[in-house]
Design a protein around this nucleic acid. Structure first.
Lengths: 196, 196
DNA sequence: TTGCTAAACGGAACATCGTCCCGTATCGTC
DNA sequence: GACGATACGGGACGATGTTCCGTTTAGCAA
């Protein structure tokens, strides 16, 4: 697999050196602005931070989703990789599932507004939604299946639904001291446990 | 309590007859547009539907939140009123809680985008958030307290958190057949049950 | 080294949307 | 019927996403 090839419709490696440099600059700038102003920061702000024109952003990242994916890809991949590891190292599959979801929640709540935009019905974010799903749902499915096989959890819940639920619970968690997304997710995860 | 007086900073009854008529017209138009295009429909669309200028909307409803509250007030009030009734008519407080939450979820998932906007960190929606909270959190608190007193549920969860969690789970539920908010909420509610 | 071309760039231009302003029309009263 | 306060409409303004187009530049070849 060539380096520039990412997920399906993704931006590939530009031919010219300056363009490659700019792509990196943009990712760094976007990361900085995302931390400061959230993932919905104006395109102009990101362009200014990077010291480039707005069109340059659109050339490298046709949609904001592509930019977000670019910025967070490594962490998403790490999360995906953690699934099998946890399954191997945890006492029971259910424990692995719970720990993995904790990881996912930690990731989401530290990214300003990411959970919200993940669920936004705004056009142009399907790519983002799709990337997260493609990458993480299979991992979650494995964890879920293992726990179900072990008889630890109810089996009428799909990984997709669980992940959507967890993601939704993380929305708006970063700026409300009265709302602790981690606790709510813990309650949800308790709820998937087989009750008998 | 006088009719025109609503929740705190709310719009009061206009003096002139045409203005009163317009207020009603606007509520009807907004309701229609909300159904068609969701609660985030452009102000201009609502104005067009009502056959008035955009300024007229702002005069009657300074923020979009005021308009949304106006449209859904009756249903929110009904939901609030249902709390004590369910508590009286249900076999156990936990059952009442579960049923009441079902009611709330039914309300949310049938209103395009309402759950999303309820949780939007967008300025101008605090009024909406506040109205829902002021009206429903006390009701939920009573149900929660009753169930906690009966020893049916864990007691480390506030009504605020629970309602936020339920609201979040309803986000984006209307246009995704793979995601059943009701089921996820049911899982969450199962999770609050005392497990032992 | 120099010259050429495609790639890449920047910023202005355009579209959309929320919000506000101001000149005009209308209601309700005297 | 006239007058003043109330309400109205639509255009103006600012912010933001997106696209267009004239200009610059990297990379290659002569």
């Amino acid at each position: 697999m060539v380096d520039g090839d990412e997920t399906e419709g993704r931006t590939d490696r530009p031919r010219r050196a300056d363009a490659r440099r700019n792509q990196k600059t943009l990712l760094d700038a976007a990361a900085a602005v995302f931390v400061r102003s959230g993932v919905e920061a104006p395109v102009r702000d990101i362009a200014a931070e990077a010291g480039v024109g707005t069109a340059t952003i659109y050339r490298h990242f046709p949609t904001r989703a592509d930019l977000i994916v670019g910025v967070y890809r490594h962490q998403v991949e790490a999360c995906a990789a953690a699934g099998p590891e946890l399954l191997a190292s945890s006492p029971t599959p259910y424990t692995a599932l719970a720990r993995w979801i904790d990881l996912f929640v930690d990731f989401l709540v530290t990214k300003h507004g990411l959970a919200g935009v993940l669920q936004s019905d705004n056009a142009g974010f399907e790519t983002l939604h799709a990337y997260f799903l493609d990458r993480l749902v299979p991992v979650c499915t494995d964890l879920l299946d293992a726990a179900a096989t072990a008889g630890e959890i109810r089996s009428d819940l799909s990984a997709y639904e669980l992940m959507r639920g967890v993601g939704n619970l993380c929305i708006g968690a970063e700026n409300d001291p009265r709302y602790d997304a981690r606790r709510l997710v813990a309650v949800l995860v308790t709820g998937v446990r087989r009750t008998e």
